[in-house]
Design a protein around this nucleic acid. Sequence first.
DNA 1: AAGTGGTCTAGACCACTAG
DNA 2: TAGTGGTCTAGACCACTTT
Lengths: 282, 282
Amino acid sequence: MSNRRRAAPVYLQLARQIQERIDAGELPAGSRLPSEPELCAEFGVNRLTIRQAVAELERAASIEIRRGVGTFVRPPVTRVSITVDPLSQRLDVGSVTMALPHTGAPTRGEGGGDDRGGVPGEGGERVIAVAPASDSAVDAEAARHLGRPLAELSRVETVVLIGAEPWGVSSYWMESALVPRELSVPGEADNVVRVLAEATGIVLEYDWRAFSAVGADIGDADLLGVPTGSPLLVREGVSCTPDGEAVLYVRRRINGERARFVLNFRPEKERSDAMPSTAEDG
Amino acid sequence: MSNRRRAAPVYLQLARQIQERIDAGELPAGSRLPSEPELCAEFGVNRLTIRQAVAELERAASIEIRRGVGTFVRPPVTRVSITVDPLSQRLDVGSVTMALPHTGAPTRGEGGGDDRGGVPGEGGERVIAVAPASDSAVDAEAARHLGRPLAELSRVETVVLIGAEPWGVSSYWMESALVPRELSVPGEADNVVRVLAEATGIVLEYDWRAFSAVGADIGDADLLGVPTGSPLLVREGVSCTPDGEAVLYVRRRINGERARFVLNFRPEKERSDAMPSTAEDG
DNA sequence: AAGTGGTCTAGACCACTAG
DNA sequence: TAGTGGTCTAGACCACTTT
């Protein structure tokens, strides 16, 4: 009849213990954790148990593991903020692609300052596949959003780059007849929405946009260079003609660590220095 | 000089192989995977290797593991959609809490239908802690957003429930003097924003809101009953008086599987049945 | 009781990074 | 080359669920 709560597994206790050291400042951002053998000795457990604890902290984004080097406490993340003015901006002018300020690789690791100015290629969008919609669940949802039969649709898959680093993965669905020739073959494309608008002469407006969060599936994880299950910010929605005819459904998965979408509800004002805002949305 | 790409580790190859079976329909949603010993025999590897592969698929949300029972292919997720009308809704009327339609526990698992009607308690918000802001990074950010010194602020931590299930975790920061007595002690609170507005007589408007994605840290994972690192949708922002004075900073982490925020940019129209919309936002 | 997944040990070998 | 983390094996015991 003992209602005693089962003790947590050892690896979880260790994870919490190490997290407490981090929170308490005993292990400041950028500092190195003891090596796995050292932790084994300290806690008197098998290496695999230590590894489970460390993996837990890595999933929690508390630490960063660098193979062959060591394990380090992560500094607080800095995100790219993208502002959307919900009161006025209704025109879908293209992609977020060109937005980002200093495109240098993100600062990480030690507390040491590492300015890295002037990475030349600002970014862009690389088409990696174009194919007719199949009967997969995601294609079916796109067809539903566009109110068109699956058979008429094509899907364009792209990777959005900042500098040379993948920042997000996009899937676009549109009528197959609308797919511009420039996009019909994998390669650089700069900005899919703009190419589409220019090639077809269609003016695109936002119909709706939605935000959600998912873990990276195996395919997206590959493309983005992150572990499977990493949090991705999903931004999806339909763009339409000024008449309201749905033309394009887009679903973009963005490395969660590297983006924040901001909606300002009040007219431009002195806002706290809080929002290091930027850029346009697409 | 061999530039041959290193072969992927066995567990990853197995994960991809199993994922392909799922994608191909050989393992339909709801079906059970072979047990771990069976998979060991089939692929001729150690059980731990199989477990690594299976863990990978679980992180990718492709499968669901039920201890003592088996491992099952997950059906596509269904999310609660919350609409925000960016053109008009500017008043911060309270929490998303009361929003959700049928509060039954989410359907999961087998393809079999499992209606579960009539969970009585519709949900609410449970205060779990109230404390003065410390010098932690997250408290400091709140102070920055509110433009007030840390010492004047208090933090209120709550869990947002749907039925009996935790749906999100909220942190609110406000002037310590403003914290209503009703919130000053842990317990049921129904709706923090409403309580705050009623207790102080302050009318709250949105200043800004932002969306991002993070993995659950150990604490949030505990509160939400999800694994560490699970994708959470973060909705944060400042609410202010009609004069624009920042009053409240809120940062809510929502189980990523269970929420989607929708912004409609066009006036109400016949929209595709796509958006099974709902509710208000807070 | 039987079968499932969860935790843990001991030991091995490998790949990557740095000095 | 030495030290780090990454992968894999073999075997054990446990907790949970179902029958």
